[in-house]
Design a protein around this nucleic acid. Structure first.
Lengths: 328, 328
DNA sequence: CCCGAGCCTGACAACGTTGTCCAGGCTCTA
DNA sequence: TAGAGCCTGGACAACGTTGTCAGGCTCGGG
């Protein structure tokens, strides 16, 4: 900028004015400055700008895994909202590791992002307290924050799972299996709670062998599914706790002789083209992201003060697999 | 930092030393400083640090659409490499709009990212020349840069498409349709070229009605597919130019009475579970991202100087749909 | 002709950090 | 015991930008 000023024969501040489109510059002067800028290939240094102004016009997004199809649309919708507010998006994957989450979040805070959208991996977020006090807007997504009071936007995991399992029960099933993630993950716990509630509503006692918790990785899901299908009290239907589980269960069921019903939590692409189509409890990732990001910017506006918990409804999409009657 | 220094009763520089783990501080002093840091919830301001040091330890990733399943694994692998180098990832979607691409890239340059990974939307990147000269490491991905000399990492689109079409020809097809994106997109053009080459290799003249170019959006793809299936010279097989096209074509074919062969470019999830399984020419998005990011950091190291074009091989995965014989 | 109002413009400090340099106190050796 | 050398700690400038403020200019009215 110094160079530009020198070349245009004007003061530093005048260049700054031109660069920022501030008023009070003669067209002639502006032309000279613009010319110098082009000639020198000058680009404003936003780091210095941030240092001076205090706002970075960027928000951080910490999620579990960018490669997971659930987070693609979510990131995208957060990005769109950010863009509408002139902000950039910095994002990182925690890989479901609390320590990595904290490391990422603090790195983002050190960058002085204006706000944070966090899909928590850990369950204690007290480390964020100084940042919150310092004015970093924060919205948690998909799972609530631990030990601090903060905005959270999530799906109705409990209600969705309950509805999905009730759907299976309505189609005559009583021996229904549940395969889900580690219950320390909030969504997994809530979906399990929904499963139990639906079973209890119908007065069906749940056998321990019907529930497989903390199961991750295709091989373990496969083993869990096979066990509940061939065990002493074999299930006639399976409720899959998330999209990764659903996919593996589909593979397992395709190998089975008897027809087993399936309802999965989270929609998956092409679910309607499979034979049978996969019935799912769908959540709208884009909507979740948009809602969270909008709340974030309202926090920044000052429009929003009190932390709130926003639960978005899920939708049961029937496509065939959930309507298969029990085979016993 | 000033406050911390005051509270600990030491000089500014000493705090800086503690924060950065520099040697030359007595354990006792360090303890006092650490205590003050904790008490005040101090976090180093990286903007100021960047301003002083010149490096931001962040890289920008500009892609077409974060929500596209092809880019999820790509982003993730870029992120992993960045993480290994202690850098954060800022990313944005160009939505296939050249202007938005430029806007994003320049915003990232203004942030002084150390490097850029760009999946180009436009075909003229001369606007980047001053930045390149200023030392911003840049790697293009998936498509080459326009009018500038820069690193590019991409799949062998030509060879992959040619192989995929040859596969159909080997199974007896002669009337093979091609549905692809706008030929101004490099990948689309290359795949089209591969299609033509395979047809020519087999001595098959291509009817104009077999090629549908610049087709985007499910409705238009659907119409294109239906036209080439029911037209005057109906095709017995379709080569789909990208994953979005493939998905729509699958839907259309599922509604057809006669069996039509299909090979798609890009793998899609659950392709093996469909009836029939979908034969695809797969590219390894994670590998592409990793290769690009590694080149980027080698540019930053100074290990790499001359721009290069790196073509990664594709892989034909046969699952059934591409092995259907012609139905006429 | 003088004065005040209004418009451009530029000098300067400040944002928070780090690199450079120097001072003071200490230990060790001759 | 004096001098050399090391270790610790601090003062200061600089990174590139912007907010503040004041100076100089023009113009119109009295």
């Amino acid at each position: 900028m110094k160079d530009v000023a020198a070349r245009a024969g004007v003061g530093l501040k005048t260049v700054s004015r031109v660069v920022n489109g501030e008023p009070g510059v003669t067209p002639e002067t502006e032309r000279r400055v613009q010319e110098a800028i082009d000639a020198l290939g000058f680009r404003r240094n936003d780091s210095a700008r941030v240092l001076r102004k205090g706002r970075t016009a960027s928000i951080g997004l910490v999620l579990e895994d960018l490669a997971d199809p659930f987070y693609g649309p979510l990131s995208r919708s957060v990005e769109e909202v950010a863009r509408a507010h002139g902000a950039l998006l910095i994002n990182g994957s925690s890989a479901e590791d609390p320590e990595r989450e904290q490391e990422l979040v603090l790195a983002l805070c050190a960058r002085r992002v204006d706000g944070l959208v966090v899909i928590p991996a850990g369950d204690d977020h007290r480390y964020l307290e100084p940042e919150l006090k310092a004015g970093v807007a924060t919205v948690f997504v998909d799972r609530p924050a631990g030990h601090i009071d903060a905005d959270v936007v999530l799906s109705d995991n409990y209600g969705g799972a309950r509805g999905g399992v009730a759907h299976l029960i309505a189609h005559g099933h009583r021996r229904i299996g549940f395969i889900g993630d580690m219950p320390r993950i909030h969504t997994a716990a809530e979906r399990l709670r929904g499963y139990r509630a639906a079973m209890e509503d119908a007065g069906i006692p749940v056998a321990g062998s019907w529930m497989s918790l903390g199961v991750t990785g295709p091989e373990r899901v496969r083993r869990a599914a096979e066990e509940m299908l061939t065990g002493p009290d074999p299930v006639t239907a399976i409720f899959a706790g998330n999209n990764r589980v659903t996919v593996t269960v589909i593979r397992v069921l395709a190998e089975q002789a008897r027809r087993v019903a399936l309802v999965g939590f989270d929609d998956i692409e092409l679910a309607d083209l499979l034979q049978p189509g996969v019935t799912v409890v769908a959540q709208d990732a884009a909507d979740i992201g948009r809602t969270a990001a909008e709340r974030l910017f309202r926090q920044l506006d000052g429009t929003l003060v009190t932390p709130e918990r926003i639960e978005l409804p899920t939708r049961l999409i029937t496509r065939g697999s959930g309507e298969i009657p029990p085979a016993d």
